[in-house]
Design a protein around this nucleic acid. Sequence first.
DNA 1: TTGTATGCGTTATCAT
DNA 2: ATGATAACGCATACAA
Lengths: 337, 337
Amino acid sequence: MVTIKDISKKCGFSTSTISKALNGSSEIGEETSSLIRKVANDMGYFPNAAARLLKTNRSNNIGVLFIDEMQSGLAHEYFSAVLNSLKVEAERLGYDITFISHNIGKMPMSYYEHCKYRNCDGVVIACVNFNDLSVIELIQSEIPTVTIDHIFNDSTAILSNNLQGIKDLVYHIYEYGHKKIAFIHGENTSVTNRRIAGFHNACKELDIEIPDYYIKEARYHDPKSSGLATRELLQLSVPPTCIMYPDDFSFIGGMNEIEKHGLKIPDDISVTGYDGIYLSQVLRPKLTTFQQNTEALGREAAINIVKSIEDKKTYVPKQIWIEGKMLIGNSIKKIEF
Amino acid sequence: MVTIKDISKKCGFSTSTISKALNGSSEIGEETSSLIRKVANDMGYFPNAAARLLKTNRSNNIGVLFIDEMQSGLAHEYFSAVLNSLKVEAERLGYDITFISHNIGKMPMSYYEHCKYRNCDGVVIACVNFNDLSVIELIQSEIPTVTIDHIFNDSTAILSNNLQGIKDLVYHIYEYGHKKIAFIHGENTSVTNRRIAGFHNACKELDIEIPDYYIKEARYHDPKSSGLATRELLQLSVPPTCIMYPDDFSFIGGMNEIEKHGLKIPDDISVTGYDGIYLSQVLRPKLTTFQQNTEALGREAAINIVKSIEDKKTYVPKQIWIEGKMLIGNSIKKIEF
DNA sequence: TTGTATGCGTTATCAT
DNA sequence: ATGATAACGCATACAA
């Protein structure tokens, strides 16, 4: 391994001069500076992140909390897309990414301890149980945090505009002539709550009455439970003309159930998804859905965690809402009024 | 931050005694040792990975090369499942995971340089263009490497048994009475080559003749190209009775095309996928496919990279084949001989 | 069994 | 503009 010392020997300047030159200090003359840079380059020098960290207390490393309970994490296209965007942007800003977890080896650690152990400059928290005490400890610590899709006091939150997304969908469905709209939503999370609120808001604004039994709970990313809810809806004496699913993937369960009833989408029943994942756009009929802007979510998370690290004194936590967009497919039938 | 020095002050022993006690050295007496551990615990001490690394030259950090060209990486359920398993096992073994890439900040780095910069003890290479010179440089370096689904000299490879997988599928299809079997395969990679070999091997063993025009090339994870290939196959004067797809996801394209022709699966035409992802098991009819053991792939990758790190002297690179298993669905029709 | 001293590679402070 | 020196937190060779 070639160190700053080796360069020092090679070109006669002291290690401190080398260090300064390599870090672009204005103290060093232009000629020496460029000479040193040239030599360093020729020798294949690369700074040792650990040594630098020891002095500067900056690791240029961002921790990512991404807990894969019930495989809905990395396997979930929405989250993996966000993660990917986060990674790309963080790298562009000069930061690496390390996964944070409990239990490294035999040592049980809290998330906070793991972050300290790895000297993470900041942490992005996504796809976890936000009620976990260990998560709360981390958020309340001195380490800068950014959360995705969940609001905490004193922590910046990047939020997909779920309220607007559902409203857009309902308005769109309404424009196609539907008033008997059923809504299958996911399990109880703040995201779900916002979506439910969005649904009711839109219905109220449009002045359409939705009976309680048109609202069903299922689980995200779980076609089975959405299939079950679909069956119940189809068996009603006055079934809905359009069913909204918790997400594109769980719609698959509804699709199977609808087919089993001998019905056809969208002729006999209309449907919508949520997320706008790749799958939704290759199914036929193409799914009408609301696409979350995963690229922006990841990017903003990266930008803001870096900002809060580098401007620690002046940075003020905030909420950043990321808008999505409608993807119009062929899963909704136009009904005459 | 509480350091070894603070503990030293607190309980009167020197820093070296503290260090030894905390690392479980047998030099230190049991009473002092347990006292020190207790104090350390009370004070909330955690070792500083960077400082330790500087002394020991061991980071307990594994680099992961996981390049998301054309979004078939993290968004691809197969790879993300492997990555997740890798992460879980690595953590169990006491290692963290850091993504490796080109270009951290403004600094352009080769993969190798990035690894050195972060002091990675070893690197797992998956889902990359294995012909990339920068990848080859990394493999040939002194850093231990493990590759997934690709064989390099002097590097351990974890390999999903693609040859056997395709053979199992063909045998299964044959048992259901099919002899006119079409095979849509992915783009030219070593994985694809093995699968094609497996296909031809099985056909030869079963003594069935497959015309060249039953073999089509498409792209992995791309329903469109598989849909196109499907169309061509269906337009043949003697179309196949069964179509094998490159992977479960790209089958969606075939499914649409088949439907468009007014055909029904499996009554009019049989199909198989590959991978055994979640999606394949929630579609109706359930897809008959070959499931790769992503859990084992990731786990073995972790186990072996750690072994090659910790037994650097004695470890011998090897190839480890991971078997998968048939998932029997309802996408193949039984044909009378 | 415990303590002292040194150095890992880097940066920061203070001289020169 | 450049250099000497100390310090970051830890582990280890060696001394006691």
